[in-house]
Every structure is written in C-alpha cells, then in structure tokens.
Write a protein that binds this DNA or RNA. Structure first.
Lengths: 135, 135
DNA sequence: TAAATTCCTTGTGATATAATAGGAAATGAA
DNA sequence: TTCATTTCCTATTATATCACAAGGAATTTA
C-alpha cells in the first residue's frame, strides 16, 4: 500500500474544509463527526498540514482550521506527499541509496513508475475532486 | 510502499533465471549469491512463482528452477501482482468494500490511479528490462 | 470564569515486513 | 547404495509501521 490512512484522511480533512470554507474556522470535532474518523488521529494529521501552511488554525472556543488557499491551488500530489512523506512505490527510491543502484536492471522501471504516479497526482486538484471531474 | 521486497525479489529471481536460461536448472544458492539476497527468504518467494507455473523446479542435486516461458511473455504487472497479492495503491480498492464508497469523492481518483499503474506495469516485460528498454 | 478548542508528548495493540530455523523428501553423481 | 545437494514444508522471530488512544497544557471566546 502506497497511500495509507494518513494521506487519505489528510485529503478528507481538506475536502471537508473546502466544502465548508464559508463557515470560518472548522473544528476537528465537526470534521470527525461528518467524516466519521477518530478525532485524536485527525489531530496528528492536521498538525502536519498546519505546520506546512496548507491550513491555518485558531485555538480556543469557536476555533478550528481553515484553508489558506483556494481548492484549485492544492494538488493531490502535494497533499499525499506531505502526509505520507513520499509517494515512492518502492523503498529503493527513497533516501537511502541502494548499493547496487548503478547496475540494477529494475531501477529505471521504478523511476518511470514514480514519475507516472507523480505526474497524475500533481495534475489533479481539490477542486477537481469536489466537482467530480475524474475521467 | 506499494511494492515490497517480495515483489522486487521475485523480479530479481526471474531476471536471474532469464540471464542464465541456457544453463538448465538454476539453484537458489546461486541466485542468492549473485543477487546477494537471503536464500531462505527467496525460498518462500519462489514457492509462489512455482505454484503459479511461472517457473518449474527440479529437486535434488543439480536441481533448481527455470522459466516456463520466454522473457517477453512475462509482464512485470503479472509478477508483482502475484508476489505482492495486489498493486492497489490504497486499501479501499481491495477486497473489503468501503461503506462510504457510493458517496466518496476520492474513489474515482484511486481507481484511475490504479488503472494507470496497472497499464504501465502490464506494458513492460522481463525482456524489456533485460534489454534496458525503459524510457 | 468556564467551556471549547488546538497543541504537545507519550503509549499501545494489531498487523505487516523481512526474514530465520529445522528438518523431510527427492534427485543425481560417486 | 550412499551421500551431497537441493527443493519443499511448517513453524518462529525480530523489527517496523499503522492506526489509533491518553492525558494534559496553552489559548481563546462567550
């Protein structure tokens, strides 16, 4: 599995915030209820989105989160990469460089596969999902 | 990670068998040494390849494994799907059907992504890898 | 002041990954 | 026939990741 609940829930959070963008700050409690996802887990996920500037937060009563950009300015690729850390389909494409990399028959395959996945996910935005504009 | 060592090692085994197809049955010991992979782990992986008919085996001295088809008749997709069980990039695409599937904004995205990955991996064969014909 | 909320650190059970261990059965060569 | 070699089969284990849960501090508005 390349995309776990971290990436999927991050997407759910941002889609929920998009759909309620006119209601000011939205609390995790509301998102948790609407999306039927555990609030304590969402806390950990939204923390990453917040630190990267994808959302902004307000503490205290009437607090919550809201988008910092328009839905069309969030690519699915950027969201997944942030929440998951990477979209590499195989571990040899990540940080630690494989010892046999220079004479590996399969490395070009994995690189092309990752490029394909990246290109597709970068071509789709939150707005496309909201408008159901997938194929 | 969508593709673990199971799929990668399965590919390594079949590539090694392809490169030594003229030497009769090849033992796991030799593959293990050449590819620098743990023999006991390779045993488990080749067992699946054997049961599905991708390779055939001979026990005893001078025994080992060999391909049942020509390298161009093995798609990378078929190998990975067999060794990994699936190439689904998200769990909601596998067996258990998601409860919210019917009104999920992201399902079409995952389906298209899986289709993309599948189409690419099915378009490449062992022969392509051996001849370094990637992009 | 009180309620609601984010923010922060830590723990935890389940599952998957990546093997290892030990031996039974089969096979060809000496 | 015997023996070394190899596949085949059933466990067991160690480590990491996933998917949360617990508890409380800090902040903000009503």
């Amino acid at each position: 599995m390349m995309i776990s609940t971290k990436g999927r829930y991050a997407l759910n959070i941002l889609l929920d915030l998009s759909q309620h963008a006119d209601e000011g700050y939205i609390s995790l409690k509301k998102i948790s209820q609407r999306q039927k996802l555990p609030i304590k887990y969402l806390e950990a996920i939204v923390s990453v989105l917040n630190k990267s500037g994808m959302v902004e937060s307000l503490r205290g009563k009437e607090g919550g989160y809201r988008l910092t950009k328009k839905p069309e300015d969030y690519t699915i690729g950027s969201i997944i990469k942030l929440a998951e850390g990477s979209i590499a389909p195989v571990s040899c494409l990540e940080s630690e460089n494989c010892a046999q990399a220079c004479h590996c028959l399969t490395l070009p395959l994995w690189m092309k596969l990752e490029g394909l996945i990246d290109a597709y996910l970068e071509s789709v935005t939150l707005k496309d999902l909201l408008e159901q504009k997938i194929s």
